[in-house]
Design a protein around this nucleic acid. Structure first.
Lengths: 218, 218
DNA sequence: CGAGTAATTAACTATCTAGTTCGTAACAAC
DNA sequence: GTTGTTACGAACTAGATAGTTAATTACTCG
């Protein structure tokens, strides 16, 4: 039935075990928060023992930091692939906003990890050398789009790249990170399929409208 | 030196003790998260014992729910005082956005509590009857502003009140709730005084610009 | 094939933590 | 004062939890 592969499945496989721990740990941390996550629980949700977690990561905290590092690395990789340089400024910034929306929509667990990290005042991120130097290239991109748009006269509002990034992120992150309390208070699940495309268009419109400016009356 | 007051300070004062527990608990929960907060720690940070926490609140979870209820009640009270009805639609919505900004700026601990509650998928809010029926009147207000603005032709974009509220909240909440990771990545503290007034103007501009619309090119 | 190393397991421990027990002291009503 | 009730405190407990110890098994390489 199951033919033995040429290279037999190894019974002991450091890489695989390490990767599996990270995967399960990410889910557990995102589900319960840092303090709420249980090392025993992580171990039981897979085919290894708690000892392995300490063997590979040393402590609960170091495991958590490793989870953060991996999650941020994936996001960074996705950001690297964004290409809107060939578009006109208005469409470039709109597309960037919509791609950010898609990206956050597809990585909800990551958003939760970030929220957890904020509750702990980013103390773990600060402990990680990998993450501390994560100067995101998205700022350069936005900076170039803004400069081009202002040069062409498409953008009237004088905006700062970090501010614009914040505006877009706020919308996309909030929709995911605050979905539960928002639903409890307003009876609307912002992450439900029926709201998705409308909100996606909205973040693009919002950004473009803000940059076009001309919203200030005499 | 210290004259005895006509009504002497009571050595035992249920209301005062209860209130103090709630106060200290809010700080502790906001600081460490639900699971991270320690009942012993809460007790030690004040002039009463752990026994009283269980005497008045029954369990850690019920204490946490009571903290949430009090925090939401305060916010609701503040919202009740907002009066922008006498303003023209454009200025009304701008002012509402800026007041929301001020409000979130002044209640950062509340924002953290909401973030914590979202990590736990709002399970505690759902357990509270007080909070479940917190249909916020802010939606009515926004609805009236939008209708008036559209009737006068000031607002071109056809927007939904919940969506607009979400847009404003996203900006104001994100600035506070994600301040630490944002600062770690972009080296900018969004909550620092030097960014405050600029961002405050920004949320107003953004909202007005979006509603004015006319941002879609031919 | 034999020795050394990397990966893995099961059982253990010290500590921490939510929740309790039981007794007592202040207050109010009469 | 006496009595009943509300508010309070110190010490305790049962279970959970991060982290360890030490033995064992698979794999590698000469």
């Amino acid at each position: 039935m199951t033919p033995r592969p040429a290279v037999p499945e190894r019974q002991r496989d450091a890489d695989r075990t390490r990767a599996e721990i990270l995967e399960v740990a990410q889910r557990e941390f995102a589900r319960r928060g840092y303090a709420g996550a249980r090392v025993d629980e992580i171990a039981e949700s897979m085919r290894t023992t708690k000892r392995m977690i300490y063997y590979y990561f040393g402590s609960k905290e170091q495991l958590y930091i490793a989870v953060l590092e991996k999650a941020y690395a994936e996001v960074r990789e996705a950001e690297r692939l964004v290409d809107v340089e060939h578009l006109a400024p208005v469409e470039a910034i709109r597309t960037l906003a919509e791609l950010t929306f898609d990206h956050h929509d597809a990585h909800r667990e990551f958003i939760t990890l970030v929220a957890i990290e904020n509750i702990h005042r980013a103390e773990h991120i600060r402990k990680s050398e990998v993450l501390a130097n994560l100067g995101t290239p998205v700022l350069d991109l936005i900076g170039r789009i803004l400069a081009a748009g202002q040069a062409r006269g498409d953008f009237v509002t004088e905006a700062d790249a970090i501010d614009v990034h914040m505006m877009i992120s706020a919308f996309c992150v909030f929709r995911v990170s605050n979905q539960h309390t928002f639903a409890a208070l307003f009876d609307r699940d912002m992450t439900a399929p029926e709201h998705r495309s409308r909100l996606r268009r909205m973040v693009g419109e919002m950004t473009v409208a803000y940059l076009r400016g001309a919203s200030t009356p005499s």
